[in-house]
Nucleic acid binder design. Structure first.
Length: 974
RNA sequence: GGGCCUGUAGCUCAGUUGGCUAGAGCGCACCACUGAUAAUGGUGAGGUCGACAGUUCAAGUCUGUCCAGGCCCA
């Protein structure tokens, strides 16, 4: 220990004469409790209507930035996925507000749909109420179930919005949009009506994904793919006319084998074989007639080896080959049935084309045999092929997954899953089975019940994506592709979202919008006495108005006459003739039982927001921000209706974020994702928000306990920097006016701050929150903590309390702290306000003054001397030399050193040497006369007892202490 | 199987149109300070840029194949 540190009781103690840091702003944030206090305080704003209202009042008259919240599903506590999503949205709305926009944020919830209905039904069964319901008539029962669903959903919305507020997100939580609100429902039906107006809505029998467990059609978005073991079978379909086949293969009559050849098909769904109506081949492929284990069969040449190897058949002989074209039109015998089936309800179905070889270009050589089993009632490719060649849409499977009476009698009434093995057994017994094996593949499952889904043809409502609209004479797909192309009206953040979305638009089928459940918005369609469907632009609009007034329950409770009271069929050109001429009256109509796909509801939210909240002002919407799964979901399903109804996209920009994965980059398991409440309690919302801000959100985001700890640590770093500045402003009263010498440290740091501030605001505007994080963090760490603050410490502590130099420094600190609070406000909502209040000495009872009602900092306009860049370069070099001296000469404490710095360009002379000394942390700074940078060891020079500097002015003073001139002056001794 | 995306120090990320010994921060190690103190400052060690091949005078950067992972689909 050096002698200077030794205590000397005879010397005066100067510590009390210093202006040491003092503040009530605690080092320990105690976020978990204090954030609650902030929330309470913010809630007092705007006459207790809260912060959101206060912000909206403040923003009145500003330029609008319209952001639209995608509705999360109203079920369960919010989880890590919501954390990122909601924080990012909050960063957007808060930063837009602080950048001078009026940015309303109406939160929404998706309230209808199967998950809630499922949960409610489970509860009803558990509580024994379900049985009672079964005794009621259908509409009454549905209404009762819907009532339960409604109160359940309302409860979930309350739960989630409470948690979102706890996350410190600011939104119109007092008046959110709920998809089950009558006014929202009505606006959805308006969209449906608008699509009807363009002639895009139709009803058809089509194979759709069908959940047996839920007994409903499912949308693409309601599917999830899981691994499943299935039976894969190779089946020989015997040719109807052997000679025709031999002819196709060019085998002369004399050379033909006596037995009949077969066509080998492959399928992974043996249960669909009873519905087989055709076999598809590719015209361009080569097919072989082969003898395998004594049987004659046809398959694609390229697959012969593979198929036979799989079946362990070694006795293989190719007799002849031919092209797929030659096989077209050949007939075969169905292995399970004698005659072509007659679909229920279609006694006149044309079955003449059944059991024929047809052409299809989706036949591949990847799997199977090159001959594709075709069942138009059970697959979309099959359906289209059937449509082309004139096959009936035959589907012998009922909604509950059992066969109807048109199936072979040994299958009727049986579940299709049980049928798989039975069909295989039957085929084996009859000698049609070539080979069967179990195999694993990914297979679509009902996202809710986790049960496998089947393709089943049913009567459903669709939105046509190809048919030209009446208004533009262009299909929705074409319009969607045009608006999302490069240079179109929609922009994407990140840019690759464009390709992703366009790829999906390119391949999407017509949108099946109907579901067969209770908890949803009814499709306002009626069935005519002749069985035809009736729904027009004007009839659905009439029902929409009823729903707005009475809610969608009206559909179930009221009569067609009531629902259509304001509808005049005679003047509706789109209405069926029988209705128009009055031969059928409303009383003859039967209400449809389908409800809308929930995606149609959320996909119509732009209309609800536009019409209900802003009289059409807020359309199109500036920004949609969701996970990248929504390219197919909400984004696309909002785009299509808005194009159909408005002729333009609902949004201008689509921003997507990635998904949470575990620390190894693997999909997050459910159990890991659940612990959000726990995270609040351990880290506080500001730390979690600071973490979200740091993320490269466009990619997958790794989550792990460790990362929150790290976020907590560098949160503290920023907090401490703020605290240090606040602690040096004790007793300071800010002067707005006044200038700074361009060569002063203050001019330098404030110009740096201006640069930071404009970069941060730019980053906010580009949604580059990660950049915001980096910029602010580095500024606190490097520019402030490492450079400026460590340089001005001496003058803050040791200069006379109201010396000009110290006051100027405090002015800078005040501006910096105030500015930092504002830049941080969108991220660290609580901490920034806490610091802001401490800085402005706001009374604890005063809730009105709040950083969240302010703007981003205006430029200080302070001009720094041009020479600062060169000066910093010289100082960096000098510090490096100082560091060498420390290592080689043992000058551990920089205050024991003086610097003589080479200044070849002559930039340093304009600066105050004491400022440069403080920037380097040394006691004395001079410009080197020798042209070399030299470190002087000042250990032998006297040290100031008060400032610990050895600046050359230190001497014994009247009070007995060793003081420098500055310190002697500060304590007032000669 | 297809579309889109990701893979750079232990961790999180930067790396414009290919061009000087690949940069930050965290963490770690060491040092200083003990008047920001359950703080603060400084210094340092860490990378065959997922793998392989190709184009080029030159590749983390372009091309292809493969591996691993994510989202969406079949």
């Amino acid at each position: 220990m050096s002698e200077t540190k030794a205590k000397d009781e005879t010397k005066p103690n100067y510590k009390k004469s210093l202006n040491l840091p003092k503040t009530a702003f605690p080092m320990k944030a105690n976020l978990v409790q204090n954030e609650q206090a902030s929330i309470k305080r913010w809630n007092k704003l705007a006459n207790k209507e809260g912060l959101y209202k206060a912000m909206m009042d403040t923003a009145k008259g500003r330029k609008k930035f319209v952001f639209h919240d995608g509705p999360p599903y109203a079920n369960g506590s919010i989880h890590l996925g919501h954390l990122m999503n909601k924080c990012l949205k909050d960063f957007v709305t808060r930063s837009k507000f602080m950048d001078g926009y009026d940015c309303p944020f109406v939160p929404g919830w998706d309230c209808h749909g199967l998950p809630i209905e499922h949960k409610v039904m489970t509860d009803l069964v558990d509580s024994g109420k379900a049985k009672k319901l079964e005794t009621l008539d259908d509409d009454t029962r549905r209404t009762a179930v819907r009532k339960e669903c409604q109160s359940y959903a309302a409860k979930q919305v309350k739960l989630q919005s409470g948690q979102m507020e706890r996350l410190l997100t600011v939104a119109d939580y007092k008046d959110p949009y709920l998809t089950m609100n009558p006014r929202f429902e009505a606006s959805v039906l308006e969209v449906l009506s608008g699509l009807c107006a363009q002639g895009l809505v139709y009803k058809a029998l089509k194979p759709v994904h069908w959940s047996i467990a839920s007994e409903t059609a499912l949308a693409d978005a309601e599917l999830e793919y899981q691994e499943r073991e299935d039976l894969s079978v190779y089946v020989d379909f015997e040719a109807a006319d052997g000679d025709a086949v031999y002819e196709a293969f060019g085998i002369e009559e004399g050379a033909r084998p006596g037995s009949k050849p077969s066509f080998m098909i492959w399928t992974t769904t043996p249960w669909t074989l009873p519905a087989n109506l055709a076999i598809a081949v590719h015209e361009k492929f080569e097919y072989s007639l082969v003898r395998v284990d004594g049987n004659l069969t046809v398959m694609a040449t390229e697959l012969v080896a593979k198929v036979c190897k799989g079946a362990k058949s070694e006795d293989v002989e190719t007799l002849a080959t031919t092209s797929g074209t030659k096989l077209l039109g050949l007939r075969y015998k169905h292995p399970l049935r004698e005659n072509a089936p007659t679909p229920i309800g279609e006694p006149d179905a044309d079955t003449t084309s059944c059991y024929t070889i047809v052409s299809a270009d989706y036949v591949t050589l990847e799997d199977g045999s090159g001959l594709v089993h075709t069942a138009p009632g059970h697959g979309s490719d099959d359906y289209l092929t059937g449509l082309r060649v004139g096959l009936p849409v035959y589907c012998p499977v009922l909604g509950d997954g059992t066969y109807d009476e048109t199936a072979p009698e040994w299958l009727a009434g049986m579940s299709i899953w049980d049928a798989n093995d039975l069909v295989a057994k039957r085929l084996t017994e009859s000698g049609h089975m070539f080979h069967a094996q179990k195999f694993m593949h990914s297979y679509p499952h009902d996202w809710r019940t986790k049960t496998p889904v089947i393709f089943r043809s049913t009567e459903q409502w669709f939105v046509d994506v190809n048919k030209p609209t009446k208004r533009e004479n262009k299909g929705l797909r074409e319009m969607a592709l045009a608006s999302t192309q490069d240079g179109g009206t929609v922009s994407f953040v990140p840019a690759w979202g464009r390709n992703r979305m366009r790829g999906m638009l390119d391949s999407r089928p017509d949108w099946c919008i109907s579901r067969q459940r209770a908890w949803g918005l009814p499709i306002p369609a009626f069935t005519m006495p002749d069985g035809g469907a009736f729904m027009t632009e004007r009839s659905s609009k009439a029902v929409a108005d009823v729903v707005r007034a009475h809610g969608s329950d009206a559909w179930f409770k009221e009569s067609p006459e009531f629902l259509l009271a304001d509808y005049d069929a005679s003047s509706d050109a789109d209405a069926p003739e029988a209705l128009r001429n009055g031969s059928v009256s409303f009383g003859d109509l039967v209400k449809g039982r389908d409800i809308l796909d929930v995606w149609f509801e959320s996909g119509s939210s732009w209309n609800a927001v536009m019409r209900q909240r802003s009289d059409g002002q807020d359309f199109p919407i500036d920004l949609y921000l969701e996970g990248s799964d929504q390219h197919r979901g909400w984004f696309q399903l909002s785009l299509l209706p808005s194009l159909g109804v408005m002729g333009k996209p609902a949004f201008k920009t689509l921003l997507t974020h990635g998904f949470m994965v575990d620390k190894d980059g693997k999909k997050l398991s459910k159990s890991k994702g659940a612990a959000l409440k726990d995270l609040f309690d351990r880290y506080g919302a500001d730390v979690l928000r600071w973490w979200v801000c740091s993320l490269a959100y466009e990619n997958d985001v790794k989550v792990d306990e460790e990362f929150f700890k790290l976020a907590g640590e560098n949160y503290r770093k920023v907090r401490n920097t703020m605290r240090f500045m606040l602690s040096n402003l004790d007793g300071y009263t800010h002067e707005q006016s006044g200038s700074f010498d361009p060569h002063s440290l203050e001019a330098w740091v404030l110009s740096e701050f201006d640069a930071l501030s404009s970069r941060v605001v730019k980053a906010y505007n580009e949604y580059a929150f990660h950049e915001v994080h980096k910029l602010i963090y580095n500024f606190c760490n490097t520019t402030l903590s490492g450079q400026y603050l460590s340089a001005v410490k001496d003058r803050l502590y040791c200069d006379a309390t109201d010396s000009t130099r110290r006051t100027q420094t405090q002015r800078a600190l005040f501006i910096l702290t105030d500015g930092l609070c504002r830049l941080l406000a969108p991220i660290m909502c609580h901490t920034s306000d806490e610091a802001f209040r401490a800085l402005h000495k706001i009374d604890p009872k005063d809730a009105e003054h709040c950083v969240h009602l302010t703007r981003f900092p205006a430029p200080t306009g302070v001009v720094a001397a041009d020479g600062w860049a060169g000066t910093h370069a010289l100082l960096d070099n000098a510090r490096r030399i100082l560091e060498d001296a420390r290592a080689t000469r043992g000058i551990d404490n920089p205050l024991d050193a003086g610097l003589r710095v080479a200044d070849p360009e002559g930039v340093l002379a304009a600066y105050c040497m004491d400022d440069l000394a403080d920037l380097c942390g040394v006691s004395r700074f001079m410009i080197s006369e020798s042209g070399e940078t030299i470190v002087d060891d000042l250990s032998d020079e006297p040290r100031c007892d008060r400032s610990w500097k050895r600046d050359g002015t230190v001497k014994l003073r009247a009070d007995g202490g060793m003081l420098s001139d500055r310190d002697a002056n500060a304590v007032g001794v000669e």
